[in-house]
Amino acid sequence: MEPRPLPNINSDNREFWSACREHRLQFQKCEACGHVRAPGSHLCHLCHARAAQWITSSGKGKVYSFVVYRVAFHPAFAAELPYVVAAVELEEGPHLLTNIVGCRPEDVTCEMAVEVAWKDVSNEVTLPLFRPA
């Protein structure tokens, strides 16, 4: 079976993915204006300050929007149909593209409370998925 594609890990997001491997969700917080951002980026898009610290998220949030795949666009996901791809708004502010697991697709709604659920997919990569909270 064709393997699941993995994220591109680079100097902007290595901290994020390293923390995921330890089941911690981390975001950059701008040291100048306090804005919390994802994905990792060289500067704050609000104030352009470079300095940022990595903070640990509560892992709690709500579904901002979601779709249900009824067709597999990639063979690695054929066995998962139907599956939910969602944009989740974390308590700290950032939105993440993710999957909603642990419930039926028809039970997912916008604004539904969710929490992070970790999926280890390789030695290097653990994906932050979300389940109903």
Binding site: R4, P5, P7, N8, F73, E80, L97, V121, L127
Partner: peptide
């Protein structure tokens, strides 16, 4: 969207 592909999101 290469960074979304791990979540089965394409196109």
């Amino acid at each position: 969207h290469p960074d979304d592909a791990a979540f089965g999101n394409f196109g």
